[in-house]
Write a protein that binds this DNA or RNA. Structure first.
Length: 340
DNA sequence: AACACGTGGAC
DNA sequence: TGTCCAAGTGT
C-alpha cells in the first residue's frame, strides 16, 4: 500500500485486513472488486437502512434479477412489491429507472460524475461505487464516516451544517490506493467499534490519533442540531372485502409511499375520518399506530363487505395478501382488519 | 437550507 | 413507551 503503516489509513487498512465484516455484497479485502451491479444495488438498499434489514432483500433481488439487464427488463409492479417493507420507496422507483439507463448504455459508468447522473445516485453512492467497484480514489462519506471523523478531529460544530468540514478531513486521510477498502474500513469501524454510544476505544486501531478520546468523552461527537417534534396525524384506511378478495389501489407515483399498492384511505388529513360519508355498512376494525420519518400516524381501520369500491383498483385474494407488497403501515392495517 | 421520505432494532 | 438512528437523495 502507498500509505505507511503508521499513518491513519495504514493502520485502518491493516485492521480491515484482519477484521472486515463478511457481508453478502462484499468481496473480502484483497480479492477482485465485486460486480458494480451488486455494489450499486446494496448501496441503494443500505441508505438509512441497517445491514440486517437489507440482507434478506438483497438476497431476494439478486436471485430474482441477477444482472442489471434483468432488473431493467422487470415489471415495475414486481420490483415495487419486492421492495415492500424496506421503506423509502422512491429508492425502488429510481432503481428501476437507473437500471434501464445503465442497460441502455451497455453497463455501469466507472466515474463518479457519470454515476452521479443516474437517478437515485447521489454523492455518497457515486463515490462508494467508484471506489469499491472500480478502484477509483473517491471520498466516501456516510453516517459512519461522519461519526468517526468528527471524533478523530473533535469537530464540535453541529451536523448537518458541518458536513463540508467533515468531507475535507475525510479527503485528507483517504489514501491514493485502496480507497474502496478504506471506505469500508471506516464504515466497519463506525459500525462495530466507533459506535454511537459507548465506543470501544480499547479495540480501535486509530485511538492514538483520536482527539475526542484524548478529550475523554468521545460519545459526545458528532454534535447534532436539535430535532423537531413529530406531529400526529389521524386518518382512516378502508378494508373492502368481497368473495375472499380485498380492494387495493395504487398510490400516486410520487410522495409518501409513492407507487406502492395500498388500502384506500381518506388522505390522513388532520380532521380524519370521512368513513361515515362512504355508503355501505361499515364496522370499526380498530386502530393502528405507525411512525413515519416526519409524522406519527394514528390510522383507524374501517371494514365493509357491502361498500362499493371507489376509483381504480383491483380485487386481491386475501389468502395471497403477502404477494401484494403492501407498505408496512397498510400491512399492519390489514392484520387489524383480519383480526377483527 | 430545510424538509420530505419508511422501517425496525437497540436501549 | 420513547428516543435515537441507520452505507442518503431529491427538491
Amino acid at each position: 500500500m502507498s500509505a505507511s503503516e503508521d499513518s491513519i489509513p495504514g493502520r485502518l487498512l491493516d485492521w480491515y485486513d484482519r477484521h472486515a465484516r463478511a457481508l453478502p455484497w462484499r468481496s473480502p479485502p484483497g480479492s477482485p472488486a465485486p460486480d458494480p451491479y451488486r455494489v450499486w444495488l446494496s448501496e441503494v438498499m443500505l441508505q438509512q437502512t441497517t445491514t440486517a434489514a437489507v440482507a434478506p432483500y438483497y438476497a431476494r433481488f439478486l436471485e430474482r434479477w441477477p444482472t442489471v439487464d434483468a432488473l431493467a427488463a422487470a415489471d415495475d409492479a414486481e420490483v415495487m412489491a419486492a421492495w415492500a417493507g424496506l421503506g423509502y420507496y422512491s429508492r425502488a422507483r429510481n432503481l428501476i429507472a437507473a437500471a434501464r439507463a445503465v442497460a441502455a448504455r451497455g453497463g455501469f459508468p466507472d466515474s463518479e460524475g457519470e454515476l452521479r447522473a443516474l437517478p437515485g445516485v447521489g454523492i455518497y453512492i457515486a463515490a462508494a461505487v467508484a471506489a469499491i467497484a472500480f478502484g477509483r480514489r473517491a471520498v466516501v462519506v456516510d453516517a459512519n464516516v461522519e461519526r468517526v471523523v468528527s471524533r478523530l478531529f473533535a469537530i464540535s460544530a453541529p451536523l448537518p451544517g458541518v458536513r463540508g468540514e467533515i468531507r475535507r478531513w475525510t479527503d485528507a486521510i483517504t489514501p491514493a490506493s485502496r480507497a474502496g477498502d478504506f471506505a469500508q474500513a471506516m464504515m466497519d469501524l463506525g459500525a462495530t467499534i466507533c459506535t454511537p454510544r459507548d465506543p470501544r476505544c480499547l479495540l480501535c486501531p486509530i485511538s492514538g490519533d483520536c482527539a475526542a478520546r484524548e478529550e475523554g468523552e468521545p460519545a459526545r461527537y458528532p454534535v447534532r442540531a436539535a430535532k423537531k417534534a413529530k406531529p400526529l396525524r389521524r386518518g382512516t384506511a378502508f378494508w373492502v372485502e368481497r368473495n375472499g378478495a380485498v380492494w387495493l389501489v395504487r398510490r400516486p407515483g410520487a410522495g409518501l409511499l409513492g407507487g406502492m399498492r395500498a388500502l384506500p384511505d381518506d388522505g390522513w388529513s388532520a380532521r380524519g375520518d370521512g368513513a361515515g360519508e362512504r355508503p355501505g355498512d361499515w364496522r370499526d376494525a380498530g386502530v393502528v399506530r405507525h411512525g413515519f420519518t416526519h409524522f406519527e400516524l394514528e390510522l383507524a381501520v374501517r371494514a365493509s363487505r357491502s361498500a362499493e369500491p371507489v376509483g381504480p383498483g383491483e380485487w386481491w385474494p386475501v389468502s395471497d395478501l403477502e404477494a401484494a407488497g403492501l407498505p408496512t403501515v397498510f400491512a399492519k392495517a390489514a392484520v387489524r382488519a383480519l383480526a377483527d
